[in-house]
Structure formats: structure tokens, C-alpha cells
Design a protein around this nucleic acid. Structure first.
Lengths: 338, 338
DNA sequence: TACAAGTCAGACATCGATGTCAGGAAGTGT
DNA sequence: ACACTTCCTGACATCGATGTCTGACTTGTA
């Protein structure tokens, strides 16, 4: 038999309602009573029944994490970070893959997700910048927090990001500091906002150093290993190959690395390679890729914190709920001076 | 306002209980009444409140998918497959990463997962063969289905798998049919059951073809890109290099492929490479990897089906709930005849 | 001292479904 | 036609929490 609120109430000599107050951190409970109740809670190992809670209150104590493609290590890390924070707060988390390119996703959403009465949604990129989804959530009155979307959106504002442009700038500057002057850049999927911000950071760093960005030194890509391989091959095999290549993410950096090997080039002796994201593969690859570490776990946790913030859902669109987390650059074996 | 069971009952001229019976497919409802109720359900777009349902019945209409490392594309595909089937049945699904190597996971499990009163659990490998977890679930009286675990377990039996040994046998046989006689094999993480079954298939196929398995032709690995790279390099750079290498999974096959390139070998001209799993990277890589496709989506769906089967939880441990799904071999660019 | 305002705690109804049980209708055998 | 199953259906209590409301007890102030 599981422990109910009544058991706790009886043992503590108070009413169930008071126990409820304590559990939810409501005011108007004397400190002595609160402590006594908490003691019993600990002793009995009481955990509130999530279903009963959701049924009687308007809230569900459930948060949703929506991903486009949960394959990425990115989504997984978000999941773990968010989950940890949820547990601390006695919330639960569900992960839902959302295929916005399928017609009828909205109806599907209403039928399958809405009955859950989620208290909030966390949107992983690139979902976080899909206006149709944002509109739909707003129409459903479901508060959301966006992870690394493009620009600043409408109210209610919830935004977690790192300064990607500055990170790309820093990475480029470091390559320059290493002595590189001929630096190539590979773009990501044009549908992701990161593609623009990361490129902008690269371009700005080059400009700040007084270095020209030659034609052909910025190649298109789509964040996949293969696109990195192809772009890398084209760049390194062409005339005047760069001495360093900065790829917009780690998968592409891996592709560039293989391209270099195919051409008989040694990394990092002949060419330095840098990535972005600090995906698990970046560490495991050979040579291990120098990259920008995103605090994705912390981002997931921050998203939960914001959503649980009392009054978040009705907050005005001021900057209070915009969090910019710290990134850092991880030096590994794929970059060196020349 | 959302539609409740009372609304449906009133409109259909029956009691709420009868609507409940219809919704749950219980017997003892006249066909005419059933149809009339269903009509109203459709018209009003009624969906039962999951929380109320869980509260009043012993069931939660919630299934859990447990993963060791949800990073893998494998877990993601399972998730999608299971989710689809859940929706069809008005079930919900939560995904929980489980770190069994952390002490105190059991207490954590009891505190965070048990209150959900899951109706069943789906265990992705390698969790599916962790005896401690299995015991814990049994102690909690939580029915589970295991995906591709080792051997046959105790009751209650729920098992979804492909015949990995035969798949590995087939893949090896095809390499042989292509004209290869010197074939290397790279093992996976020794903690995974697949490591043994896949190797067994390889060895059997070689034996069946009358080919010897030379010393050093079976190299240890751990399913990571890097271990594939290292094993591949050692094998290909050593004396009497094989003309084909069969890696226990796609990540390692990718590593072997890079090893070949580093050594100036061309794939598949100089060496053929085969993988296992049909991970997303296998398709995107260059050259695209020949591999064994696992019907992971179908496996997820099958797991849900079994868990929802009425009476599954109390079923005797006969073979009825053991499903063996079909695999198939996907020919891509990394293998060729010689 | 007395009175208003604020703090604290409990009684009771309620959320939306299902479990139990009892009773009426329909079908069966003699 | 009668008793006897078997098949349908609804009334009512229940799951475990929270929302509302009411009243007692503290406090601060005139």
C-alpha cells in the first residue's frame, strides 16, 4: 500500500489540507507545523499522487519537451538536464517527437498532447523558431520556453541560449591567434538560425583581424557528416586550400577530418579543424575535435526553472526570462599552430 | 471547456458508466447502444481525461521506455515506434534515461518512477539484460518487455528481437559470396549480449564455408567510432590484412572506413566494410555502409502491443509473447566483390 | 481594553473517471 | 407458464489530492 496524504495528516496530527499546503510551499503555515509535517513526510516516504494532483488542480505537474529529431545528442542532453530539474521540483517530463512537416500535425497535437494539460513546453531547435508551432501553442494557451531560437519572439518570452555569434567569433579568433590566416568556414542547414549567427561570428572575427574572406571560403552545408565531407574535399582539393577549417557543427567537422585524411593531409599538421556543439562524437573521434561546448544540460534545467516560475505564464514580455548561458571552447587534438 | 464523460452520457441518453464501458471496450453493452455512444463521442470529440482514469482505476495508461543511453538512434527509433502504437491505443509514453551504474538508482527509481504507476516498461538494450533491473521491476510487480536481450529470461516473458546470430551469419556469407576469404571481425562492447551473438554468427558462417578464422582476425571493440578506428588500423596495417571487415555496428564500421582511408586504402576497392544496425550515420557516411537493418520502429510497436495485451502481466512464461522480427541486409557502397 | 487586520488551520465539495453491486430485461429449459 | 440463468444497465461510493470558505487565534493599533 502506498502512503497517502491522509496517512501523513493523521500521523502529524493535522488535516490533509495542511499537508497539502506544506507540500506545495504555500504560505500561512507555521514554521513549527511545517517542520513537523516534513518530518513525517520523510519518515513515511510520502510522495503525492501525481494523478490526483492533476485532477483536482488546474495544473498537471507535467512538462513537455518537443524535439524535431531526437536523434541528436543535443536533444538527449536537454532531456537529461530538464529531467534532473523536474525531479527536484516534483514535476514529470514527457518527450514528444514532433514532425511539423507532416500535414495534420496540429490536429494530432490537439488530440494527443493537449489532453495531458501540460504546464509548459520546452522547444528544442529548430522547433524553437517555427512560427506555426509558436502560434499554435499560444492559441492553446500553453507557455513555452525556446532553446536557441532565432532572434527575440513575441510574448510570452522564454528564451535560453548561448551567444553563438560570440562563440563563433572566439573560435575564429583563436584559430587566427594560432597563426592561421587562410580559414575556411562551412555553414549549417539554412533552416536553422544557428547557421546565420555562427557565420556572422566567423565573418566578424575575420574582419576584426583584418583578414579577407575569399570567395569559396564559405561553403554551404546541412550539419550532416556527408555535407562536411563534401565541402571539406572541395575546399582542400581546390586551389589555395585553407590551413584551417571551422565547421558549423561537429558532425561536419568530422566529415572535414575524413576529407583531409582522404587527400593525404594530416590533422592538425597540415590543416586544423574546429567544430561546434561538443557532441559526444567530437570527443570520441580521432583526432578529437576542438569545439565549442554548449551547456546543454544546464539549458534544459534552466528551461524547467523558468516554466515553473510562478507567474511566468502571465508575465509581460520583458527580458527577465531570457537567459544567456556560458559556453566555453574545448581544445582538443584537431587544431594546432603553424 | 473540455468535454467530459457526463456530457457524452447526457447527449446519448445513457449513464456515464455505460460510456465508460464503451470507451474501454468492455463486454455487456448492446451493439446499438455502443454505436449510439460512439457517434456522440465522435461528434463531441470526447477524449477521456487521463488523470481521472488513472486515479480511479489501478492502471495508469502510461508506458515507460527505459534507455541506458538515449543518444543512440536506436533508442530514438524505438521511441517513435512505441509512441505510434501507444496513440492508437490511447496510451501515453514516457522515456526515462536510467543510469544503472550510479549507486542509489533503485531508490531513485522508487521515488520518481513508481508513483507513476506505469502499466508496463519497455527495456532497450543493454538495459534489457541487466538482471538487477529485471529483479527490481519484478519486485515492483511492473511488467516489462525486453528488446534484444541475451537468452531467455524468467517469467513474465516479453521479448522482442531479431535473430542476430543469423543476421551476422547472412552478412558474413554474403561477403564470402562476394569472393572474400580473408575477413576480419570487430566485436562490440562485451557487456552487450549482441557482442556474443553477432560474433557467433560470423564464426559459424566462416566455419560453414570451410574458411579458417585466423588469430588476430577477431578484434575487440566497444561499439564506438574510435574503437573501430583503432581495431581497423591494427588489422589493416598488420601482416596479411583482410580484404573485408565486418564490424559489429555501424559506428565502428565508420571507424574502420576512416582507418582504411588513413592508410591510403580505397573502400570498397581495396577493402570491403560492413556494419550492423543501420544507424542513420550509416546512410549518410561516405561511402555509405552496407549493414543489417533492424526493424526498430516495428520493435517498439510490438513491445507496446504485448504490454497492452490483456492478461499479459499474469501470463505464464510460455513462448506466446516472444516475437522475432525480420531483419534485412542493406547493400550500400562500402562492399564489393573482388 | 477593544477592535480591525492578518495569519493559520480544518470542513467540505470537487475534479472525471472506474469498481462494485444490485436490479431489470431477455433468453432458456421443464 | 414458471423458475433460472445470462445479459445489460445504472446508482453510488471511491480513487487522492486541491479550491473555497469559514472560523479561531495572533497581532498591531487607537
Amino acid at each position: 500500500m502506498t502512503v497517502t496524504i491522509k496517512d501523513v495528516a493523521a500521523r502529524a496530527g493535522v488535516s490533509p489540507k495542511t499537508v497539502s499546503r506544506v507540500m506545495n510551499g504555500e504560505p500561512h503555515v507555521r514554521a513549527a507545523v511545517r517542520d513537523a509535517v516534513m518530518l513525517v513526510v520523510e519518515a513515511l516516504g510520502y510522495r503525492p499522487n501525481a494523478f490526483a494532483r492533476s485532477l483536482s488542480s488546474a495544473r498537471s505537474y507535467l512538462l513537455g519537451l518537443f524535439c524535431d529529431d531526437p536523434t541528436s545528442g543535443y536533444a538527449t542532453a536537454l532531456h537529461r538536464g530538464a529531467l534532473l530539474e523536474c525531479r527536484r521540483r516534483h514535476y514529470h517530463l514527457i518527450v514528444e517527437p514532433l514532425a511539423l512537416d507532416m500535414p495534420g500535425w496540429a490536429g494530432d497535437f490537439d488530440a494527443n498532447i493537449m489532453p495531458l494539460k501540460l504546464d509548459g513546453a520546452i522547444l528544442a531547435p529548430p522547433l524553437s523558431q517555427n512560427q506555426a508551432l509558436l502560434d499554435h501553442l499560444a492559441a492553446c494557451d500553453l507557455p513555452y520556453v525556446r532553446i536557441s531560437p532565432e532572434g527575440v519572439g513575441e510574448a510570452p518570452v522564454g528564451l535560453i541560449e548561448i551567444d553563438e555569434e560570440r562563440a563563433a567569433h572566439d573560435m575564429t579568433a583563436h584559430l587566427i591567434a594560432l597563426g592561421h590566416r587562410e580559414i575556411g568556414f562551412i555553414e549549417g542547414d539554412p533552416r536553422h538560425a544557428s547557421t546565420r549567427t555562427r557565420r556572422a561570428g566567423f565573418v566578424a572575427a575575420m574582419r576584426d583581424a583584418g583578414l579577407p574572406v575569399l570567395a569559396g571560403r564559405i561553403a554551404p552545408g546541412d550539419f550532416s557528416f556527408r555535407s562536411g565531407l563534401e565541402a571539406g574535399e572541395a575546399m582542400l582539393a581546390g586551389g589555395l586550400p585553407p590551413t584551417a577549417i571551422f565547421a558549423s557543427n561537429d558532425d561536419m567537422a568530422l566529415g572535414v577530418s575524413v576529407a583531409a585524411i582522404k587527400l593525404g593531409l594530416s590533422v592538425p599538421r597540415d590543416v586544423s579543424i574546429a567544430g561546434f556543439d561538443d557532441a559526444p562524437t567530437a570527443r570520441l573521434a580521432w583526432p578529437a575535435i576542438t569545439t565549442v561546448h554548449q551547456p546543454v544540460l544546464a539549458m534544459g534545467a534552466a528551461a524547467v526553472r523558468i516554466l515553473c516560475e510562478p507567474g511566468y505564464r502571465d508575465a509581460p514580455s520583458d527580458a527577465r526570462f531570457r537567459e544567456r548561458l556560458h559556453y566555453n571552447i574545448v581544445w582538443r587534438e584537431s587544431t594546432a599552430g603553424r
